[in-house]
């Protein structure tokens, strides 16, 4: 590294933000964990570093949905060996290769990975189709949604998984409904709604409280309440 790099590159200064965010985040870890995490991050390839930083941005974004956040953290853990793969346990294993490893050990995750692969494929195909139909270049689209052209290229080549807000921005830029790019976007939202309905520690709204406090207004079952038999 040279002084000119520090003095003349305004982008380098902008990048400080993500470095600061990583240091801040690791402060909640125990000292050995922090050392292990930062060591792994420095040792892994540039590509993996870039992915981890972008995933950390997803994690800290307040608009990220819980399922997305969980997936991002899982991917980070995998990318940085925190769950070392049994085959070689080396640091900084390839991100794309880590998915099958993790999936092989976890059946629901395997299903999730399969599903997401299929979704990515149809997403890339739809995006390509829409860009052709609307005669928009990768460069143009990247400017409209405020990301880099290589990022668009990666999406089209199924090299990276778009986040929900990227899908929303793409849909806006292409003037289509998000569903046209990612048919399951409604499903993800509905599942999030269901998960939040079950949350403990939910504070009732005034309307809910008055309806549930009013035990004088009992509405009783109108169907025959009867447990069904188990198999004969």
């Amino acid at each position: 590294m040279t002084d000119t790099f520090l003095l003349n590159d305004p982008q380098a200064v902008a990048r400080l933000d993500s470095v600061a965010c990583i240091f801040e985040w690791t402060r909640s870890m125990s000292a050995p964990d922090r050392k292990r995490f930062l060591g792994a991050l420095i040792e892994c390839s540039d590509d993996v570093q870039q992915v981890v930083v972008s995933l950390l941005n997803v994690v800290k974004d307040p608009r990220t949905m819980p399922a997305e956040r969980k997936r991002a953290l899982m991917t980070i853990a995998d990318a940085l060996f925190l769950n070392p793969c049994e085959e070689d346990g080396r640091y900084g294993q390839d991100l794309a290769a880590s998915e099958p490893y993790a999936a092989a050990k976890n059946a629901p995750l395997a299903r999730e990975v399969r599903k997401m692969n299929a979704q990515e494929e149809s997403f890339a195909a739809r995006l390509k189709e829409l860009m052709t139909a609307k005669q928009i270049s990768q460069q143009e689209l990247s400017e409209r949604i405020g990301c880099s052209q290589p990022a668009i290229s990666q999406m089209l080549n199924r090299m990276c998984r778009p986040q929900k807000r990227t899908i929303l921005r793409l849909a806006e830029a292409l003037n289509v409904h998000p569903r046209e790019l990612w048919p399951d976007i409604d499903v993800a939202d509905m599942l999030d709604a269901v998960a939040s309905f079950q949350q403990d520690d939910y504070t009732m709204t005034a309307a809910e409280a008055s309806a549930l406090a009013d035990t004088a207004k009992k509405n009783r079952p109108k169907v025959r309440a009867k447990s069904l038999p188990t198999r004969p």
Partner: peptide, 20 residues
């Protein structure tokens, strides 16, 4: 026998119903 709880809307346009 469920009754709609008036004035309540949860995420993604969901309403809540209650039964005693």
């Amino acid at each position: 026998g469920f009754e709609l709880i008036p004035g309540v809307e949860r995420r993604n346009n969901h309403v809540v119903m209650k039964l005693w």
